[in-house]
Design a protein around this nucleic acid. Sequence first.
DNA 1: GTGCTTGCAAAGAATTTGCATAATT
DNA 2: AATTATGCAAATTCTTTGCAAGCAC
Lengths: 140, 140
Amino acid sequence: MMATDSLDARVDEILKSLGRRTTAPRRQVARLLASKRGAFSAESINAELPEVGRATVYRTIRLLAEAGVLCKALLPDGSPRYSIDHSWHHHHLICSSCETVEEFRSSELERLLGELSDEIPGQVLGHQVDFYLTCPNCLQ
Amino acid sequence: MMATDSLDARVDEILKSLGRRTTAPRRQVARLLASKRGAFSAESINAELPEVGRATVYRTIRLLAEAGVLCKALLPDGSPRYSIDHSWHHHHLICSSCETVEEFRSSELERLLGELSDEIPGQVLGHQVDFYLTCPNCLQ
DNA sequence: GTGCTTGCAAAGAATTTGCATAATT
DNA sequence: AATTATGCAAATTCTTTGCAAGCAC
């Protein structure tokens, strides 16, 4: 699958650029992530990779999230979900029913958020916009 | 303190309207919440109320959050923080440094979010906008 | 060889649940 | 009296950490 190859290559590059080592466990995690369509929890990845230690799964996911390969969305209760970061800056559409997470982008929204950031006292580091919804699928 | 009185009264009303009982532990929690300026964790409330059971603290906070007395914000890592809901619909300014949570409102933002909601497939239930920043205080 | 990585198990942190007891209405 | 609520402890869930052994470079 193309996505798998490109993600693997990207991960290799990133590890190198960070001075981190390319290891079998990290590759296994990256390969599994590449096969995922939507968002997933760290635990679910751990469950699917019994041959990789839980700590390594968590450490690798954090590493990839910090490197921008994965992005983290928060369910309404705060549970983190990760998904492959396909586009540079985006927001999330989170289905409250099936917990699916979709990416969402709006240049108009970004423009306004940028303007608002200028008005906000302090130094704005970033923002997060999530829509909670019932997805078309769950509406039947 | 005025704020305390009004929140107490509000909580009494809400309990009544929900058919829930007015109890000493719930009043203690409500009174402590009323004295809080910013956002707080459930655990911090529990720690400050040794005479109230942890389960009761958590149950009461959830009750008040569902009733709209408290609102819940999520720190970047997903940890929930609660604060008294002073205004109807608002968003949050979260300081990544001191974890202070401030309310934030923008009619223009609401308008745009409403428009976007119409374009999003599925039934939009709500949205959340958070700005992560370094607050003026933490900038020194 | 040197130092980053792994895996395991244990430690933690936050929150929920079961259930007998106590309190409200 | 009939229920709802409390409190305690145990159970859960998710995540991190310590550390000896292993592997990449």
